[in-house]
Nucleic acid binder design. Structure first.
Length: 879
RNA sequence: GGGAGUUUAGCUCAGCUGGUUUAGAGCGCCUCCUUGACAGGGAGGAGGUCAGCGGUCCGAAUCCGCUAACGCCCACCA
């Protein structure tokens, strides 16, 4: 059989993915087995795959594949999120390119375009996930705006409203003047900006040249000022009590008020108050019953209320008002100033605090049980530190602004009546019935009901995701939700802990009285080598599809994992994928080697192969136990590294080198079949990490049925076997001896192909180990191992576990070099002995430390003394 | 301003309740090897006073304080 010398992932990845799909190996239905459920964090429906998704979904796939092989009924539910703001922005942009203005369209027309766009571009990301090997049950693919899921959203809204947890209110909200919608507090990101602090003086009413000077970063809002505020204890302003000031330019008379809110140290100690455009000013406005003058249009331009600069954008107005202030003699000075400005996460537009009527959800009662669930570990966070972040937010949770002034999303089921009242109901018909009963005097007709124009925040549907994908809200007793919920683990990024994780927990407890998942694994942020976040605008994010074409999906999966402990940022570098690809190739070639051997059943199994097989089985169990422990702690990178080293170092570099038959010689049948078993086990434990290559090789190892797949094969479990520790320890010593021999070979330039002799100094009563000797002989190309009683000349030597090994060499010994080496060893040993003696000489150590620890030190001492003695003898012999 | 972190080899990180660790891994680096699985390889090797200072202890990378540097999260400072 001809096998390519290099592993070519392109040739097999599609083949196996199709095979898995065809045989419905990802599909899950409730059955008698225990369930292992994961719901995908739904990516934006119009999004494309980025490195964060790669990391996140690789981890999910590993856990799901492993669970499946461990006998669980594994179900990974895929889907997408409608992402109202992001998607609507994309659609608006697309329409603009076509020369269509959203404002010219009716709601229905716009939504038609939006759905068309969604059908065309939606779900690309799910196709991309298939390249990665994601074993999602695709038949279950959900979209947050699917009819059933939408119905659940509306049900939940109505339910919360009826419970009094949803209310409508005038509030200062974060307004995005670009998206023309309110956004929640969590969707605002604050950035430091280099800006200016403007000092402006306001004339005191009724005086000629008495002024009060304020400092502001937003002089354009002066046009909406309705007061000036100072600290009540500030001596500088005592004389101004009860007076009024004149707003420059607009010449409005406003009161001077005194409140402890003002920081006397800042600026001049006097603060201008614009209740319509600043949250703090708004609160002061409420307290002192100030006028509220809204000077901005929704798009951030000034309106008629401003009287001046009408129609000018807020930032342009900020520039243009300066000469006006100067002309009025009001501008005192301008200073450079660094402050923090809120930006919309979605559009990167500067947020404008805006007073408006919005829908809110009261979070306090919902938060309490959700906080407890995490604090008492009903839900475990990995890493644990996120418990703190979570508890702080939950304890200080604020009401959630859930309305968005958009069209793409779930429309709020509130219906307004001619009398300005409204009713909330699932459908217009139901609302009509309720309204008729409530207001019989209105003689309502169906057309009189006007549905609220707003849609709900995207997260108001995502927080139901673990329930709604199983239709658990509309039909709480259906088989699916009872079987799959709560889900097993959620894999997500820490930046959506409040947006999503916290709210899912609240929703789960509110509507199912049960947590939505038992474990939450927070991945790190994927950054580039310079620690910069990967982003489209920086252009520092590699295209995952290209990466997979270059290194293979298995290689990229491994690359993603190699350096990503939970919660730590991952500094992504292509070279990690290269390492993954190299590993694929290493495995491929190990397979190639084995498949290239001729098998001869007539040959007896050599001792060294017998030992190697036994050793490897023990070693496999040992490593597998640590891998399982790593998985229990969600230390997935460590688990992968464990498999990596087992395959590369133990299997390829050590095991195969022992059992390898001589060139062009056949291998005995027993060893061969044992190697196949071992290789198969390695493929099994590696499969969750590298699904494609393992499936390919698993099929090539032996005859398989048409429907067989490694995906549904059974994962090996570590077996405790007698004598394992002893064998492993003996083998460790053997490996050290092998290394020593190789070092001597390297130092003396003796090629591996030239056989050498090994002499071992042993006392009469000392035991020998023929099994391990056979391994040493094989690995080091040693013609014979002889036991002797005394040192002979013309040899190089080394010491392991107080046994001296000698290698006769043909060439003359370089005494000087040899002495130098021995003296270095001696020095090291003596220093070591000294440190041990120092410890033992300390009476308090001997009396206070546990006996065991002291015994260990004593053993160290005698070993070191023995070694020093031998080294000294060697040195004496040379001189 | 508050909170929670991080700081260990050139790079990325392990090191769990202090004692077989005069500190480990992967990658990188250096030297040599390489017509017999794999140069995407093999063998060997060099790299660290565990950020700094102080304390507790018989014993500290590990526990406690302070200092410094760097992320992160939260917060209404004009």
């Amino acid at each position: 059989m001809e096998i390519a010398t290099k592993y070519e992932p392109q040739l097999i990845e599609n083949k196996w993915y199709e095979f898995w799909m065809e045989h419905k190996l990802f599909a899950s239905k409730p059955n008698g087995k225990p369930s292992f459920t994961v719901v995908i964090p739904p990516p934006n429906v119009t999004g494309i795959l980025h490195m964060g998704h790669m990391l996140n979904n690789t981890i999910q796939d590993i856990l799901v594949r492993r669970a499946r092989m461990m006998g669980f009924n594994a179900c990974w539910v895929p889907g997408t999120d409608h992402a109202s703001i992001a998607t609507e922005a994309k659609v608006v942009g697309m329409l603009r390119e076509k020369g269509i203005d959203k404002r010219q369209l009716s709601r229905e027309e716009f939504l038609k375009y939006a759905w068309e766009w969604k059908e065309k571009h939606g779900g690309i990301i799910l196709q991309q996930l298939k390249k990665l090997g994601a074993s999602c049950d695709w038949d279950r693919t959900k979209f947050t705006m699917d009819p059933e899921l939408s119905e659940a959203v509306i049900d939940v809204f109505v339910d919360l409203y009826n419970k009094g947890k949803i209310y409508r209110g005038v509030r200062m909200v974060n307004w995005d003047p670009k998206a023309l919608t309110a956004v929640s507090d969590e969707e605002v990101v604050y950035k430091e900006l280099q800006s200016k602090l403007y000092y402006v003086r306001y004339q005191i009413e009724g005086t000629d040249n008495e002024y009060v000077t304020i400092a502001t970063t937003r002089p354009e809002t002066i046009l909406g000022d309705t007061a000036i505020c100072m600290h009540p204890d500030d001596e500088r302003f005592k004389h101004l009590r009860g007076k009024r000031a004149i707003v420059p330019i607009v010449n409005r008379s406003i009161p001077l008020i005194f409140d402890e809110y003002v920081d006397r140290e800042f600026g001049t100690g006097a603060l201008k108050i614009t209740p319509a455009h600043d949250i703090n000013d708004y609160n002061l406005g409420l307290k002192y019953k100030l006028d509220t003058i809204n000077i901005f249009n929704d798009n951030g331009t000034l309106n008629e209320n401003a009287q001046f600069l009408v129609g000018v954008d807020r930032f342009k107005a900020r520039e243009e008002i300066i000469p006006m202030l100067e002309k009025a003699g009001s501008l005192v000075k301008i200073e450079d100033y660094v402050n923090k400005v809120g930006f919309s996460e979605r559009t990167n537009e500067v947020i404008e605090p805006k007073l408006s009527v919005q829908w809110f959800c009261d979070m306090r009662a919902l938060a309490k049980p959700a906080l407890d669930a995490v604090m008492n570990d009903d839900i475990k966070f990995y890493p644990e530190k996120f418990k703190n972040t979570y508890s702080y937010w939950m304890e200080n949770v604020k009401d959630w602004c859930i309305s968005r002034q958009l069209w793409w999303g779930h429309r709020i089921p509130a219906y307004y009546l001619p009398n300005k009242e409204f009713v909330v109901a699932k459908t217009k018909e139901e609302a009509f019935e309720i309204a008729k009963k409530k207001y019989p005097e209105l003689n309502l007709k169906m057309e009189d009901l006007q549905q609220d124009e707003d849609v709900l925040d995207t997260w108001f549907s995502s927080w139901l995701w673990p329930m709604s994908v199983f239709d658990g809200l509309r039909h709480p007793d259906n088989e699916e939700i009872k079987y799959y919920y709560p889900t097993s683990v959620l894999i997500t990024a820490p930046d959506i802990i409040f947006f999503w994780v916290a709210r899912m927990i609240m929703a789960g407890l509110e509507w199912r009285k049960e947590v939505p998942f038992k474990h939450v694994y927070f991945t790190g942020t994927v950054r580039d080598k310079l620690r910069r976040k990967m982003s489209k605008s920086l252009g520092n994010s590699p295209d995952p599809i290209m990466l997979m074409e270059k290194f293979g999906a298995d290689g990229v999966r491994m690359g993603m994992l190699l350096s990503s402990p939970a919660g730590n940022d991952l500094l992504f570098d292509e070279s990690l994928c290269e390492q993954g690809r190299n590993f694929s190739n290493k495995i491929w070639n190990a397979f190639r080697l084995i498949k290239g051997w001729q098998v001869d059943d007539q040959i007896a199994q050599p001792l060294h192969s017998q030992v190697a097989v036994k050793w490897f089985q023990h070693r496999f169990n040992e490593v597998l136990a640590t891998i399982n422990a790593d998985f229990d702690k969600f230390r997935i990178s460590d688990a992968l590294m464990g498999v990596y080293k087992l395959v590369w170092d133990d299997f390829c570099a050590c095991f195969l080198e022992i059992v390898k038959p001589a060139y062009q010689q056949p291998i005995d049948g027993k060893t061969y079949s044992e190697i196949i078993d071992i290789f198969e086990n390695l493929m099994l434990i590696l499969h969750p990490f590298m699904p494609f290559i393992t499936e390919e090789l698993w099929h090539n190892l032996r005859e398989r049925g048409e429907n067989e797949s490694i995906m549904i094969a059974q994962m090996p479990q570590p077996k405790a076997e007698n004598g394992a520790d002893n064998l492993l320890a003996r083998f460790e010593l053997t490996r050290k001896v092998v290394e020593d021999v190789r070092r001597v070979r390297a130092e003396k330039n003796i090629a591996q192909k030239n056989a050498i002799e090994l002499l071992v100094i042993k006392q009469d009563d000392a035991e020998t180990d023929a099994e391990m000797d056979s391994v040493i002989q094989k690995l080091c190309n040693i013609s014979s191992i002889q036991y002797i009683k005394e040192k002979v000349s013309g040899t190089c030597s080394f010491i392991e576990q107080n046994t001296e090994y000698l290698i006769p060499i043909a060439q003359n010994i370089n005494v000087e070099e040899e002495l130098k080496k021995l003296n270095a060893d001696l020095e090291y040993a003596e220093k070591f002995l000294q440190s041990v003696l120092k410890k033992l000489a300390n009476e308090r150590f001997v009396s206070n430390a546990p006996e065991q620890v002291v015994a260990v030190e004593r053993k160290k001492q005698s070993d070191a003394e023995e070694k020093i003695k031998m080294l000294k003898e060697q040195i004496a012999n040379l001189q």
